Amino acid sequence: MNLVLRASILLLVLAGAPATAFAQDASDPIGNILDQVGQPAPATPTPPLPVPAPRAPPPAVARPTPAPPVAAPYPYGPRPQIAAPYAPSSSTYAPPPPNLSPSLAEPVFVDEYDRTPDRPMNSAEQGYENRMRSSFAAAQGMQGPLDGAWTLRSDAGQAVYTLLLVDKNNGRLEGAWRDPRRPGSRDSSGFLAAIQKIGTQLTASFYPSPGAGAVTLTLTPLGNGEWTGELTEGGARLGVVMSRN
């Protein structure tokens, strides 16, 4: 009896074991997960490495055109351009020939009004010279009768002294002298020490050189505009005639 009972129970157990296991699997997902812990993971195939695409060239960047440098103000910058001076054409101006300048054998002094080292004057220059002489003559007419350049000559006609007198027609006279017998000498000219006119007589004095005695002059007028008289120099007396240059 006991043997048959045990055999029946064993059959029942064997028949219900798969269903129980299926029921446990279906009703217990956590157990399934726990059963998989420690199990080796299936091998996953390694995907091939991607082939890098060719690099595109960098985009072209348009560079701005540099502005021209601003010139600094002169004098720190370049010198400004200056227009060329006006040059008259050859049809309106012709230079004088080179052979018009006179050749001088000796220098020309300031008081030698009738000599000039310049070339001959053209028509325009001659007109200007005439106007200047007219103005000078008009101004000269307002001066006294002794104003101007004079020459003292001996009775033999030799030029002894030249005088430049200033007569402002107010009774006062001034003047300077020059000795033409000593051309180029530094002490061959100077100022008159004294000059005066009393009545019709003219007297003057000056010193011909440093340390020398005074030269005195006494003159009286002639009817032709000249003056005649006596010159005393170094104790010697000399008859002279003074006439305008």
Results as ranks from 00 to 15, higher is better:
Q81K: 13
L202W: 02
S185V: 07
R119V: 12
F191W: 00
D35H: 12
A7W: 08
R244V: 11
R181I: 05
D111G: 15
A62F: 12
S135M: 11
V4E: 03
P183E: 06
V13I: 09
D28A: 03
P40S: 11
S90N: 11
Q126R: 12
F206S: 01
A17H: 04
A23Y: 01
G175W: 01
Q39D: 09
L192Q: 00
T162W: 00
P40G: 06
P98A: 08
P98G: 14
Q201D: 12
T92L: 14
R153S: 10
L238I: 14
P145R: 01
L231N: 09
P96N: 09
G144I: 10
S154G: 07
G199T: 07
Q201M: 06
D167R: 04
P59I: 09
P88N: 03
V70G: 06
P95R: 01
E174N: 07
V241H: 06
P88M: 01
L11G: 14
P68D: 14
I195K: 02
T162H: 00
L100P: 05
N130R: 14
L238Y: 04
A105W: 06
P210L: 09
Y207F: 01
L163E: 00
A204G: 02
W150L: 02
Y93N: 11
E125W: 09
Q143D: 00
V166I: 04
T44F: 08
I82K: 10
N130F: 08
A137Y: 00
S91V: 15
S205I: 03
L11R: 10
P80S: 05
A71L: 15
Y113S: 13
S209T: 12
W150F: 04
L3C: 00
S243T: 15
R153P: 00
D111T: 13
A214N: 10
P58I: 04
D147Q: 03
Q196L: 06
V13T: 08
P78C: 03
A176N: 05
S101D: 08
V215T: 15
S209W: 05
F109R: 13
L3P: 00
G211I: 03
P97I: 06
R153C: 01
A41H: 09
R244M: 01
A194T: 11
P45Q: 12
T162Y: 00
S134Y: 07
S103M: 12
Q158E: 13
F206C: 01
P64R: 14
A60F: 07
D167I: 08
R55H: 10
N2Y: 02
